[in-house]
Design a protein around this nucleic acid. Structure first.
Length: 519
RNA sequence: GGCUCAGUAGCUCAGCGGUAGAGCAGGGGACUCAUAAGCCCUUGGUCGCGUGUUCAAAUCACGCCUGAGCCA
């Protein structure tokens, strides 16, 4: 029997600008959860990609004086680069300009068309090109500017458009939300969607007559398919094996429906309302969950180009390394809530948790092992009721539950608590005194228990800080080249450190970050 | 304007009916294996404001203030 699957997606990112920290944040969460599920032995599909159609892309490319496809190629490559830098292990990278994606979109369209859910109508209103959305007049700022893009004036449009009959799915959607409260998470986002749907769903436009950069409208060459309609279908395209024909039948074969669509809270509506309705129309299975995470601020302020306080993910990662960036964002911000980045807190947390509590624990213990013995993992019998062993046994299911609930912050906190307990244990046992008293048996047992605890921490923390975990395990003497070779069973069980194994020389695994003096 | 979420120690947050908590930062101490790390102790809060319900409210209700968000 094949392993059970786990499918998690990030949104596909719009190639209008260089990747920003928000995209990185979503992708880091997805990666950590995917890594956890792989550790559990699941057949995981983690997908991300880029959204490359629409008027905004067309215009940006024109402004840059390059053909749109070249523009997309260049910007899409930036995302790939950032994911490499951040140690993101995705399984597939979808680009909406890929002909294979277009084939899936056409087949999907055909099914919706056959249901009679697409009709022609007239769309009038103010349109924000940056949002690629129509806006209500009441929503616009003084002078007709978009509230989300205060420097962009909304444009008046009066067009013949094709519409998707969303209103037809009002009832089915309400039933879905009622029967599956977990479909939209967290709770606050769910409430928003519920109140939105309650007001009554209107049909939405799925074509644009004046945009050429996109997938041609299958039944009317004068029109182009609306970018959102095209973009959402990427999740199905991603489910197709790259070696297989791009058909819906092949999409359904193994990796559909998705377990989690992880999205920013700004696009929950598209994923929790439009997308399931589209799937209902096409008679395809629905994803199991849409999770809307929060936004990031910097020093308590909203980030934005106009404020000039953006946080460049490339710069941050190059300066501090992927593990530091991942650890901060995954553990210091509760997924689902907004979170803040402050460099001073960033440095404090990394030093306290990774350099001091964990890094120094390994270092001090290996140093003792070196000084007091032959620098091999001691061959000792650990009593069943050893306090560190008992604690690890208690923590293991709690850590698992935290990852399952998309809460890497809690997972890390529980995991680190064994490192903290180990530091305390060392101080209480004082092996340095025991050594002077010649009690080498006891010293061996203490050092083994602590080193094994560090190994356990490295394994359970590996979805969040894969490189750091690998370094720890290598220093403990494991011949491991790829952290994804680990498996929960048995690696997450306390007591796996092989006796007589020879560790590498003790070297700090996480350099303490020096705080710039506030002068 | 309607709705949602939040407002608790310097910072980030937990608690959500029964004498105010954690981590980080700050202060002190003993120790020495260690990346001056870790360990122990500690300073610090009329729990946004007001009214009410209750023997008892950070915790429930109502109103207000502030911030974030949703209203195609």
């Amino acid at each position: 029997m094949p392993d059970p699957t786990f499918v998690i997606t990030t949104p596909i990112y719009y190639v209008n600008a260089a990747p920003h920290i928000g995209s990185a944040y979503t992708t880091m969460i997805a990666d950590a959860i995917a890594r956890y599920q792989r550790l559990r032995g699941k057949d995981v599909l983690m997908v991300t990609g880029t959204d490359e159609h629409g008027q905004k892309i067309q215009r940006t490319a024109e402004e840059r004086g390059v053909p749109p496809q070249q523009h997309c190629d260049e910007f899409s490559a930036e995302f790939v680069k950032l994911w490499q830098l951040l140690n993101i292990r995705y399984d597939r990278f979808i680009r909406t300009t890929d002909p294979r994606h277009k084939a899936i979109v056409q087949e999907f369209f055909q099914r919706v068309w056959e249901q009679g859910d697409i009709f022609i109508g007239r769309q009038q209103g103010w349109y924000c090109v940056s949002c690629e959305e129509f806006k209500d007049e009441a929503e616009l700022l003084e002078g007709g500017f978009c509230p989300l893009h205060p420097n962009k004036k909304a444009e008046w449009k009066d067009e013949e458009n094709y519409f998707f009959r969303l209103s037809r799915y009002q009832q089915q959607l309400e039933t879905l939300y009622a029967n599956h409260p977990e479909f939209i998470q967290p709770e606050s986002r769910r409430n928003e969607v519920l109140s939105f749907v309650k007001q009554g769903l209107r049909d939405f436009s799925i074509s644009r007559p004046s945009v050429s950069w996109g997938i041609p409208f299958p039944t009317d060459p004068q029109q182009t398919l609306y970018v959102w309609f095209d973009a959402l279908i990427n999740y199905l395209s991603a489910a197709v094996d790259p070696a297989a024909e791009p058909t819906l039948a092949n999409a359904l074969r193994r990796y559909w429906p998705a377990d989690v669509h992880l999205v920013g809270k700004d696009i929950v509506r598209f994923h929790a309302i439009y997308w399931p309705a589209m799937l209902m129309s096409a008679r395809l299975p629905l994803p199991k969950q849409v999770f809307g995470h929060g936004f990031l601020t910097k020093d308590g302020m909203k980030m934005g180009k106009s404020l000039g306080n953006t946080l460049d993910p490339f710069e941050l990662t190059r300066q501090y390394g992927p593990d530091a960036v991942r650890y901060y964002f995954l553990t210091q911000i509760e997924v689902g809530k907004d979170g803040d980045f402050s460099e001073s807190r960033f440095i404090d947390i990394l030093n306290a948790d990774l350099a001091n509590d964990l890094g120094n624990l390994l270092n001090r213990t290996l140093n003792m092992l070196k000084k007091y013995g032959d620098y091999r993992i001691p061959a000792v019998r650990i009593p069943e009721a050893h306090p560190l062993k008992l604690l690890a046994q208690t923590l293991t299911p709690l850590v698992a539950a935290a990852y399952e609930q998309l809460d890497p912050s809690l997972a890390a906190q529980k995991t680190l608590s064994l490192a903290q307990a180990s530091n305390k244990y060392l101080d209480e046992q004082a092996p340095w005194s025991l050594h002077k008293q010649g009690k080498s048996e006891q010293v061996a047992e203490i050092l083994y228990a602590v080193l094994e605890s560090v190994r356990w921490v490295a394994v359970l923390l590996s979805p969040i800080v894969p490189d750091l975990s690998l370094k720890i395990l290598q220093q403990l003497g494991f011949q491991l080249s790829d952290i994804t070779q680990l498996r929960w069973d048995p690696d997450a069980t306390w007591g796996q450190l092989p006796p007589a194994q020879e560790p590498q020389p003790p070297t700090p695994i996480f350099q303490k970050i020096l705080k710039p003096s506030p002068s």
